[in-house]
Computed example of a mutant assay.
Amino acid sequence: MLYLEDLHVGDTFQSRRYQMTKAEILQFAEKFDPQPFHTDAQQAQKHPIFKGLAASGWHTAAVVMRLWSECFPIAHGLIGTDSHVRWPCPTRPDDEIRITVTITDIKPSQRKPDRGIVRYETQALNQHDMVLFTSTTNILVFKRDSSIV
C-alpha cells in the first residue's frame, strides 16, 4: 500500500489489460444506460456518430475504476475529491482496455497534517492505442503515521 510520502510527481502506474465483451456492454447498458447505441447493434450502426455498438462511457469509467484499484494501491482506498473526465473515442466490443496513471501534483494539507491531495492524470487506451477515456482526478491520501486504522 502507498502513502502520501511514497508518492512523487511524475510517478507512473500501468494496469493490466481488460477485455470489454459485447455481452458485458449490453448487460451494463440495459441496467444503467439504455440508449440504442449501447443496447442494439443494428440501431447503433445507423447512429451518425457511433456507427456501431459502443459501450456506455460510464461503463468504460467503471472499468477504469477497477484498473485504478488494481494498479494504484493507495492505503485506505482511492478516496476521490473531484474528477474531470472525457471520452474521446467510443469503447467497442472486444476492446482491450489498459490505463496509465501519472501523478501531476501533491499538496500536503495545511489544516490536517496527516493527509494531502494527490492529482493524477489517467489515459485509457485500447489495443490500437486509441484513447478511450481521460481524466484528471484528485484523491485524498493519508500519511503513513495517520491515525486511520
Rank of each mutant, 00 (worst) to 15 (best):
T102Y: 00
K107W: 03
G116E: 11
T21G: 05
P88A: 05
S69Q: 12
N138F: 09
Q35I: 02
L7S: 04
E121M: 03
I148R: 13
R111Y: 11
Q35A: 15
R111M: 14
Q43S: 14
V149W: 03
I97F: 02
S146P: 06
P36M: 08
K22Q: 13
F142G: 12
D40W: 00
A41F: 07
T60D: 05
A62W: 04
D33L: 05
V63D: 02
K143H: 12
D129P: 00
P108T: 09
D114A: 13
R111D: 15
T21A: 04
R92T: 01
D145V: 09
W68G: 00
W58T: 12
V101M: 04
A61H: 03
S135K: 00
Q14D: 06
R86V: 02
S146Y: 06
R144Y: 09
G80L: 07
F142A: 14
D129E: 12
V9G: 01
N126I: 00
T81V: 15
F13A: 00
H38V: 04
D114C: 08
I99V: 04
T91M: 02
K143G: 15
W87R: 04
K51N: 15
Q123Y: 00
Q14I: 04
Y18E: 03
T12E: 14
I74A: 02
H76K: 10
F50G: 07
A54W: 08
I117N: 12
Q42Y: 08
N126K: 03
F28G: 05
L125M: 08
P48F: 09
H84I: 15
D129K: 04
F32V: 14
F133K: 01
V149G: 10
S135M: 01
I79H: 08
R111K: 15
Y3E: 12
D95K: 02
G80H: 05
P88H: 06
G80I: 01
A55V: 09
M130R: 05
D11S: 10
Q110L: 15
V101C: 07
F72T: 10
F133D: 01
I79L: 15
